[in-house]
Design a protein around this nucleic acid. Structure first.
Lengths: 191, 191
DNA sequence: CGCCGAGTTGAACTGAATCAAGAAACGTGG
DNA sequence: CCACGTTTCTTGATTCAGTTCAACTCGGCG
């Protein structure tokens, strides 16, 4: 997948970007191809980049008492970064790893700020992403707050019916805040 | 509390706003004084406004199976709106109510968009708020995902030691995703 | 073929919810 | 300032959803 195709994909998925903006974006980003199960952001590091998932699927996770807890998924057409580190400039508490073979577009915070400064439509894209992410988080809070394990799973299936085919159940379970065993029982409806 | 004082408070709390911007803001906002326990946003309505809490404390809540569940608190110096409705233009699933007597600055979405268009520093203020809210939600997700009731309470006390003096425990409990009884037991350390 | 990671199943355990009473604190009016 | 009703909080007993631990199954892959 070429850089131009990916940028094209962004404009289709979100808002159209002017030719000038697309060119500047191309010049300040790079495409990375990564194999399955590869950590490309590591806890403890400063994460200065955002990634657009052109192909594949990735997840952010952290270790809680040695246990792998998934915090976020991003599929093709979505952006991801290590939020805390990216915005607060602290070491990342999260890892981000590929779940499948991936093609990502990597853009540094510096580049993003410059592009936002220069191109209004790019700035607006950034705002749109912030708002979406915020609303998604908000919905997740509600789900974690008072839903049963079963309801949590069903909500997820509504939003992402394909997730079960693509992501190991362990990660889905921790994302939902339940154990693998409970998820397994829910799926076989013995609960 | 006068409108000018409140706008002054915003510039101190966040970023300084130019005189022109402050003037435009004053012309497109209004101050509302509300008594304790007053719903000023109601579920089912379209919420076109954001509020700056100049004095007092408010909470967003929803009804889950007839039960009052607190979703968010805002204290003086913070902004609040019915996120879903404000950004997605759907009927609000949330109520927003005062917890104490309050002075709020009310600004319509229209006004916010115009001010953001016209004044760069106002636009940036908006972005700052989005980022902060997103990061706070993110931390809340982690807390709800795998912390024990006790840990959740302690995290909250770290961030907001004063909350217990100001907000009824029922609301704190539902905010944390636990029951009032459990919270009570945690507080008296019999658990 | 045999191993290994992913998922399933079972049984025992537990943290927190639920249900049910009380006790304190709070405010309002006599 | 006190009696009251109301709301907020505490405490206890019981139940239950979900965890934990452990064994087992299955499907791929070297």
């Amino acid at each position: 997948m070429s850089k131009e195709e990916i940028i094209q994909q962004i404009t289709e998925q979100y808002a159209p970007l002017s030719q000038a903006c697309q060119k500047d974006l191309a010049n300040s980003s790079r495409v990375v191809y990564l194999p399955k199960d590869h950590d490309f952001v590591r806890a403890g590091m400063y994460a200065h980049e955002s990634f657009f998932v052109a192909k594949g699927c990735v997840r952010a996770y952290y270790l809680k008492d040695g246990r792998d807890v998934t915090d976020w998924f991003a599929f093709e057409g979505e952006f991801i970064n290590a939020m805390n580190s990216f915005f607060e400039e602290v070491p990342s508490p999260y890892f981000i790893a590929t779940v499948e073979n991936c093609a990502l577009l990597e853009i540094s915070r510096e580049a993003i700020y410059k592009l936002s400064e220069k191109h209004k439509e790019f700035d607006r894209l950034g705002t749109t992403l912030l708002v979406r992410t915020m609303l998604r988080l908000q919905k997740r809070v509600v789900s974690l707050q008072f839903e049963t394990a079963q309801q949590k799973y069903e909500s997820l299936l509504n939003q992402r019916p394909d997730i079960v085919q693509r992501v190991p159940l362990t990660h889905i379970a921790s994302f939902l805040g339940i154990t693998l065993e409970t998820l397994s029982r829910i799926r076989s409806k013995r609960i």
